[in-house]
């Protein structure tokens, strides 16, 4: 499964030839470097270690630095492993060209933090009546039965919303700009501008078209 690390630059729109517009997220795709490979014989699983964003030597610990020295690479800020990424050699450079326009990708990133939020915003609960003496406007209602005599784990309640690692699936690559090393994906990607984003080939299966020409699947 191919992939790389990127930086979210922001959003804009592109005009289509028919005059409609497409909202796109602009990602600065790498350049990433292959730091090393994990092999099934040695490590028990196959993966590629990908490094992104060159930093000064003093920013890293000696342990981290050692790995870069061994791979004869400059120190990088971020390192991730991508499982099952074949056909790579250590030291190789990864840029936007590994993807082509029209491909489907998954995007992993930290979403924007929303702070401590109530149930209505966080879990899309409905509110109660606001008048006629109602005291139940943005309250949770019942959170369990007398019978169970406890509150079950994982019950939807108020709390921290956002700022979690999340994967959003099936983005279409609208354009690959090799010159400026940009990836343009259709729609919004989780995370703030400047966020670190992991872009991988999509694992979401493409549904086949239904009978009698009725398209049931995603438009690819």
């Amino acid at each position: 499964m191919k992939g790389l690390l990127a930086k979210k630059l922001g959003m804009t729109q592109l005009f289509n030839p028919d005059g409609t517009t497409t909202a796109v997220t602009v990602l600065e795709a790498g350049p990433c470097h292959v730091l090393g490979l994990r092999t099934a014989e040695k490590d028990g699983y196959a993966a590629a270690r990908i490094a992104f964003d060159v930093v000064a030597e003093r920013k890293l610990s000696k342990g981290e630095l050692g790995e870069f020295k061994k791979a004869k690479l400059e120190p990088h800020r971020h390192v991730v492993e991508i499982r099952g990424y074949d056909g790579l050699e250590a030291g190789q450079e990864l840029k936007a060209e590994i993807f082509a326009a029209g491909e489907i990708v998954d995007v992993t990133s930290h979403s924007k933090g929303k702070g401590f939020q109530g149930l209505i915003k966080r879990h899309k609960f409905s509110r109660g009546p606001e008048s006629h003496g109602s005291m139940n406007v943005r309250q949770p209602g019942a959170i369990g039965s007398t019978d169970s005599a406890r509150v079950f784990k994982g019950l939807k309640m108020s709390g921290q919303m956002g700022n979690v690692r999340t994967t959003a699936r099936a983005y279409k690559v609208v354009r690959v700009d090799a010159e400026r090393n940009l990836l343009l994906l259709k729609g919004g990607v989780p995370g703030a501008r400047g966020a670190l984003v992991l872009v991988r080939q999509s694992t979401k299966p493409v549904k086949v078209k239904g009978p009698a020409g009725k398209p049931t699947g995603r438009k690819v």
Partner: peptide, 12 residues
């Protein structure tokens, strides 16, 4: 000029 402004300028 940042990349997004460049992309927009190209289309104008």
């Amino acid at each position: 000029m940042n990349v997004i402004q460049q992309l927009e300028k190209e289309q104008q």
